Amino acid sequence: MSLAFPKRPGIRRALDAVLLAAFLTLLSGCNYSFTGGGLPQHIRRVYIEPFENETPYPGLESLLLRELQDRFPGSLGVRLASQSSADAIVRGKLKSAEEQTTNINPNTDASGRIGRLEAQVQVSFDAEIYDVQNDKVLWRGNSITALGAFNPNTEDVDDGRRKALQQAVQRLIEGAQSQW
């Protein structure tokens, strides 16, 4: 007879085993945390520099900055800071932003035009996370592409740009997390 599982009816014993396994899993998880959020432990404060904008769309860098400020700190366990007090700096350059038709309706409308069923905005950018204290680049991504699909019948190109910038921020976060 096992001390851990005294003789009990089959279902009751199975339930005890499942509860014990769940408790041990929960207990072992208590010591695990995301300190640093994927960045070295000394990186606690981050300054996000406005990206240079080489696209023909003024204001795109402001939208990206806002999206980065909203999502980057929480995803990586850091706080926003001024450039002078930051442990790391996020910076980069928006290289291109293009609208593309990805799916068309082969039937023409009354005016003879072919309708678009789906389009996307493709944003290309370079980015890096720079460690101020150790004077080195922690992560660098060149020519990263992010896509924002939208339905041109119900959404406009700004929706596609917003979605592409959200994906750009996600790629930057994933890049930072993949290094540690």
Rank of each mutant, 00 (worst) to 15 (best):
A4R: 15
A86Y: 05
A17C: 10
S96Y: 06
S85K: 11
Q177H: 04
S62Q: 15
I144M: 13
K95W: 00
I48P: 08
L63N: 13
S178Y: 01
L60H: 03
D70F: 02
D70V: 13
L138R: 08
V46M: 09
Q170W: 06
Q41S: 13
D87T: 00
N103W: 07
I48H: 09
A22G: 06
L94V: 10
R71M: 10
V132G: 05
I173Q: 02
T108I: 10
E155F: 00
L15Q: 15
N107C: 00
I114P: 00
A127N: 06
I173K: 03
E99V: 09
G115T: 08
H42M: 00
L60G: 04
R116D: 01
E61V: 10
R13M: 13
S28P: 07
L76T: 14
L68A: 15
E98P: 03
E98Y: 07
G29E: 12
E52A: 12
Q177C: 01
L117K: 13
G148W: 00
H42Q: 06
R12L: 13
Q120G: 01
R45A: 08
Q122S: 13
Q83T: 00
A149H: 07
R116T: 08
E174P: 02
Q122Y: 02
L15H: 13
S28M: 12
K93V: 14
V132D: 02
L172M: 14
S28D: 08
L27A: 15
A146N: 04
P50R: 10
N134D: 04
V18G: 04
I104V: 15
A97F: 07
P40D: 12
G29T: 12
T35P: 01
P50V: 09
L27S: 15
S62A: 14
I104N: 12
N103Q: 15
A164R: 06
G59R: 06
D87K: 02
P6C: 07
G37K: 10
R13L: 14
G141A: 09
G36S: 06
F5M: 04
D131G: 06
S75K: 11
F51G: 03
R91N: 08
A86Q: 04
K163T: 03
R161W: 04
A21Y: 03
G38D: 07
A176S: 08
T35S: 09
P58W: 04
T35D: 05
G148I: 06
A149T: 12
L172V: 12
V157K: 14
A4L: 15
E174M: 05
A81E: 03
N31C: 02
S178G: 12
L26D: 07
V46P: 10
Q69A: 11
A17P: 11
T145N: 14
E155C: 01
V137W: 00
R79K: 12
R44V: 06
K93Y: 05
